[in-house]
Design a protein around this nucleic acid. Structure first.
Length: 422
RNA sequence: GGAGAGGUGGCUGAGUGGUCGAAAGCGGCGGUCUUGAAAACCGUUGAGGGUUUAUCCCCUCCAAGAGUUCGAAUCUCUUCCUCUCCGCCA
């Protein structure tokens, strides 16, 4: 959520910022609503004040044993007026909140213009793309004889699910272990385990609701639960409605969870293989920091994700997303894209975003700044470190040999019980 | 799932219709005293919002929502959560 004060003090800038995101903002209608809000709120509060004063008078008169009937008569006509005014105010406030909840975050000024992923800017390139003396296979062909099974998954569930058996299942687990160990032991994160079903408030807090309900799996319950699309949701919401003490800042969490996405808008995209699934494993990094620290923390968190790719010796590039490709809640996002020999393309394996105070305002997540003694909104930052399913694909494809074997990367061997080749 | 007890400020905890945003204690902050510190004493100490240049002032918030009332932390209803016992269970 954007700061409501911006709408009152600098509406022109709001218009300009939202236009950068191609968000159609009717500022004239908004301003009219805002003016109405002001009038109604002032009137409501005056009426409330009047009611409070008169009620106190009645209380005092009664305490003295005076006749309160004349006072009661006076106050009669207030109830209706006040009630009407309060209802009107509530309606206006709800309308404004609904409007503002649907507005995307402001982009960081460094974010390049552009409409889709073709306009993203490469800012770093790491590793050597492997050159094979044979036709490289993709993970589907490589996995066929090794326990990567889409048919069984389709039978048990549906398309866009995968079953992993034997060494491949273990390899995915090894990848997750490596990530968790690296982030806790070397990057200073605390590991955390969280629920995979969350309530609507949590999804509102991180910005998936109300706008992106179609991307989520909803579980019929009263009240409804949703399967998490990313660990970002439960982990970030830890600080919802919390004022974090300065001594506990920054908060750094690493969390492994499965992620569930309906992929409603992705019919026909990436239908082959396990690039795009309804369920996948991910290790997520989340930082809760002060506004002052947030730029630095975002850079660092992205590097933490990059370190995993480096350890696995997987070639990747780092992209700064353009305006059109940056997510709703984010002000600035780096995508890490790993090289997939089977597709001869770089594909997203991590997305690291700085949400600034956008999620924090929705969540009322604050920290107490010792300099002012006052609660201030935190900044939230998160990124995949990394998506484990896609990491598995990347390893399969980059570490293949002519016979179709997959070699285990050096750093994973200790997690694989000595297994060198699958 | 059944029965019972509860949810009050950073924490403990009082408050069953009328200046209660809320006693008291602890903690925090400021001060007196001290070479310094502790102890003692004094003062201060929630969040959000409106208005304002600012102060003042005003509104809202005692799990959440609805209701009764001139007036609700206090009464009624619904929901959620926590604890205890029983049942079931990895």
């Amino acid at each position: 959520m954007l700061d409501p004060r911006l709408f009152r003090t600098d509406l022109e800038n709001v218009k300009k910022q939202l236009k950068l995101r191609s968000f159609n903002f009717d500022s004239v209608a908004f301003e009219a609503l805002e003016n109405k809000r002001k009038t109604v709120q002032i009137r409501t509060q005056e009426l409330q004040n009047e009611r409070n004063k008169r009620s106190k008078n009645i209380g005092q008169a009664k305490a003295k044993g005076e006749d309160i009937q004349p006072l009661l008569d006076q106050v009669q006509d207030y109830a209706d007026q006040l009630n009407q005014s309060e209802n009107e105010l509530t309606d206006i406030q709800q309308e404004m909140t609904a409007l503002m909840s649907a507005m995307p975050n402001f982009l960081d000024e460094i974010v390049p213009k552009g409409k889709d992923e073709a306009d993203n800017v490469e800012i770093d390139l790491w590793g050597k793309i492997p050159v094979f003396s044979f036709q490289a296979k993709d993970h589907v062909d490589l996995g066929e004889s090794k326990g990567l099974d889409f048919e069984v998954a389709a039978k048990i569930s549906s398309a866009r699910f995968a079953v992993l058996k034997g060494a491949l299942a273990r390899l995915q687990r090894a990848i997750i272990q490596l990530m968790l160990d690296t982030h806790t032991d070397e990057h200073g994160y605390s590991e955390i385990y969280v629920p995979f079903l969350v309530n609507a408030d949590s999804l509102y807090g991180t910005g998936q609701l109300p706008k992106f309900a179609d991307d989520l799996f909803k579980v019929d319950n009263d009240p409804d639960f949703y399967l998490i699309p990313t660990a970002e949701v439960p982990v970030t919401n830890i600080v919802r409605d919390v004022i974090v003490e300065a001594k506990d800042m920054p908060l750094k969490f690493v969390c492994h969870t499965p992620c569930f996405r309906s992929e409603a808008g992705a019919y026909g995209r990436d239908v082959r293989g396990m690039i795009r699934q309804h369920q996948f494993e991910k290790v997520e990094l989340v930082q809760i920091v002060s506004a002052e620290e947030s730029v630095k923390a975002h850079e660092e968190l992205t590097q933490h994700a990059e370190n995993i790719l480096k350890k696995l010796k997987l070639p990747y590039r780092k992209m700064l997303l353009c305006a059109g490709d940056t997510g709703f809640s984010s002000s600035k996002t780096y995508d890490l894209e790993v090289w997939l020999p089977g597709q001869e393309k770089y594909r997203e394996i991590s997305s690291c975003s700085n949400f600034k105070d956008f999620q924090a305002r929705r969540m009322q997540a604050r920290w107490r700044n010792p300099e002012t003694g006052k609660p201030e909104l935190v900044h939230t930052i998160n990124g995949s470190g990394l998506a484990a399913g896609r990491t598995l694909i990347a390893i399969m494809e980059n570490y293949q040999d002519e016979q179709g074997y997959i070699h285990i990367p050096e750093v994973l061997k200790s997690y694989m019980g000595g297994l060198e080749v699958i």
